[in-house]
Each structure stands twice: as C-alpha cells, then as structure tokens.
C-alpha cells in the first residue's frame, strides 16, 4: 500500500497545496492569525516561489522578505512546518511529508526576534549583538600601511574559518535557539560563530577583549548544547564546533577559575575523573559559590526537598562500575587532548 502511494505521488507533477500563512499587521491587528491560500503547485517549486505566486496572483498584502532567491543572501529565513529555513531553497514537495495536516504547509516568521509584519522580523537586535561582540577584524596592520603587502596566511588557517565564513546571517539558528527563547540578551549562535571566526584569525588583535566579553553573562557559557542551531543551519556549518572552540580557548587562555561557566566545566571534569558520574548536589556551590547558591537556589531546593526530588548527597554517589578502567581511559584521553593542544599551539 505504502509503496504504491509513494509511486503515485512520484508520478503526480502538479497538485493543489494549501499554504497556511502567519499574518500580523500591528497597525490593524490586535493579535496574529493565519490565512489559508490554496494554489496549484508543480513539482520543483520552492516555498518562496509559491509565496511569490500568492503575492502576485492571490493576495498582494502578504508580506515577506526576499532578495537573491538563490540561497545566497539570507533574506527569506522563515519557519516552514515549524522549522526555520530559507524559503528559497525549500522544495514544496519535500515539505509535504512534514505537514501536520496533510497538504497544508504552515509558514511562520522566525522566532526570537521582534515581529514587524507577517513573515518579517526585526534583524536590528542581531546587528547590535554583532557590534557588542566586536564581530570584526581589528587588524594588526596600521591603517597607513594597508594595501602595501598581503598577510601570509596558511591554507590550514584559512580552513579554520572557511566554514564559519559561509554564514549568511539568515538567522535560522537564532530562531531555533532554545537559550534565546528564555533570554533575549543571550549572545546567539550566529554571533558566537562569527566571534569564533574572528578569534582564530591571525590578522586580528582584539582576541582577548572579545573573549573577555564572550565569557560574561549571556555569553558563550550559557549554551546548553541542544544542537538546534547546527541542525537547522542552512549552510550546514558546524556551529557547535565554534562554540566549543571558544570555550576551550577560554579555558586555555583564562583558566578554569575565570567565570562560573569555566568553574562549571571544571566541576564536571572533576566528578567524571573521580566517580565517572556527576555529584549534582554540590554542583551549584562549585559553579557559582555558596552565597550565590543560597541566594538564588534556596527556594528551589526547598521545593525539591518537599517533592522528594533532591539529588543524592555526595557520600551516597558511589563510583560507577568499572571505574578503574574508565579512569585509565580518562587519563589517556586528557593527555591526548593536552598533546593535541600543544602541537596545535606550535
């Protein structure tokens, strides 16, 4: 049955598809709503071309951004069936399998950015963050000397930032970021990626200043490794590698006592080395200090005790099974990483 269905679908070259489009014009609408547009769509048509068709032939008031229409400029970031992506590189037919209601494609604006109208959101907060985190090269070459000779840069160094410079700032990662949903001030994946790209560039001179900003509150340590940014990146950029890169670099340059983020990472390492698992009860103390923990987490701790949801006290956390073998492996691994870093620094 299923096979026949798929084969039939394959043969079909044109069909009516409904686009359920998010509408909101703050000038007249009290709250957002959805409009359904049913149009004939051929195989091979992108979501953007479908939206263009709707705007030209059905409803000229539907508003969205589009510029290059070729996946290069990053203007048409939006959520299609709940996932942030570029409308111009998204095939309608490939979305059909992902529709919650058969034959109805849901099109919504990116999240985590202030809405302007329909599918258009405000990019200014992202630009402000690029400025805040100094997402530019502050060159080691004085302005008066520029243009006279090129820097010599190895292909190896170029490869370090090659992928990161693919970023077209479409903000899909910004829209998918779970930390940003909780904290609008969070640096955001795109800006971390750009910061990383600047920090590994040998022509730059403000690496330390940028890093100092990145380790502050709402910075690089706030990421919780959900990998949503990397999964949705329209250019398949390994964004999490960049985030980890900044963190490793921060530990290396600024040490493990630097910020709560660094201390948190160190506490993890300690626990894993000793017991092969986490001693969660003392993690907050070791990360943020006693005072902070008492001030900020006491009410939650009380609630947890009431509901009997507290983690076991430290003496009760017994080392994992096979801890001996694990410790040996762990030691080898850390030494390996150290070697790598040393040879890398050379």
């Amino acid at each position: 049955m299923h096979m026949t269905g798929a084969a039939e679908q394959h043969k079909e070259e044109k069909r009516d598809i409904t686009f359920r489009v998010f509408r909101f014009n703050p000038q007249v609408d009290i709250k957002p709503y959805f409009d359904d547009y049913t149009i004939p769509v051929e195989r091979g048509i992108t979501v953007l071309r479908a939206l263009n068709y709707i705007k030209e032939h059905v409803d000229p008031t539907v508003s969205f951004r589009a510029f290059c229409q070729a996946g290069i400029c990053g203007s048409c970031g939006m959520r299609v069936n709940g996932i942030s992506k570029l409308a111009c590189t998204t095939q309608v037919w490939e979305e059909l399998d992902r529709c919650k209601e058969p034959g109805i494609l849901k099109v919504e604006p990116l999240r985590n950015m202030p809405p302007i109208k329909d599918l258009i959101v405000d990019m200014d907060p992202l630009v402000d963050k690029m400025k805040h985190y100094m997402n530019w090269i502050d060159s080691s070459m004085p302005e008066s000397e520029m243009g006279k000779k090129e820097f010599l840069v190895s292909e190896d160094e170029f490869l370090k930032y090659d992928k990161a410079t693919d970023c077209i700032l479409c903000a899909s990662c910004v829209s998918e970021c779970t930390i940003l949903r909780a904290h609008k001030e969070y640096v955001s994946p795109a800006v971390l990626l750009k910061s990383y790209r600047m920090n590994v560039d040998s022509r730059d001179t403000i690496h330390d200043t940028r890093l100092a900003e990145l380790v502050k509150d709402h910075g690089v340590w706030d990421c919780t490794h959900c990998y949503r940014c990397q999964e949705t990146c329209v250019k398949s950029i390994p964004i999490m590698d960049a985030i980890h890169g900044i963190r490793e670099n921060a530990l290396e340059v600024r040490g493990t006592k630097d910020t709560s983020g660094a201390k948190h990472a160190e506490a993890f390492m300690d626990d894993i080395a000793k017991k092969g698992k986490l001693v969660e009860a003392t993690l907050p103390f070791r990360t943020n200090g006693v005072l902070w923990t008492v001030k900020n987490l006491l009410p939650m701790a009380v609630k947890m005790i009431m509901k009997r949801r507290t983690p076991p006290p430290p003496p009760m956390v017994k080392p994992s099974k096979g801890i001996k073998a694990f410790r040996e492996e762990f030691r080898e691994m850390t030494e390996h990483v150290k070697d790598d870093q040393q040879s890398h620094n050379k």
Partner: peptide
C-alpha cells in the same frame, strides 16, 4: 592595492602553497 587592503582588514581568501592569496 585594493586586494591587499581587503586582505589587511580580514577578508578570507583561498591560499596558494606559499601562503599568498
């Protein structure tokens, strides 16, 4: 001059074996 200036302000370029643009 302009290509070198772009290099000087941080434009990524692909590189030859001798590390030039």
């Amino acid at each position: 001059k302009i290509i070198r200036e772009l290099d000087n302000i941080g434009t990524p370029w692909s590189r030859l074996d001798d590390n030039t643009i």
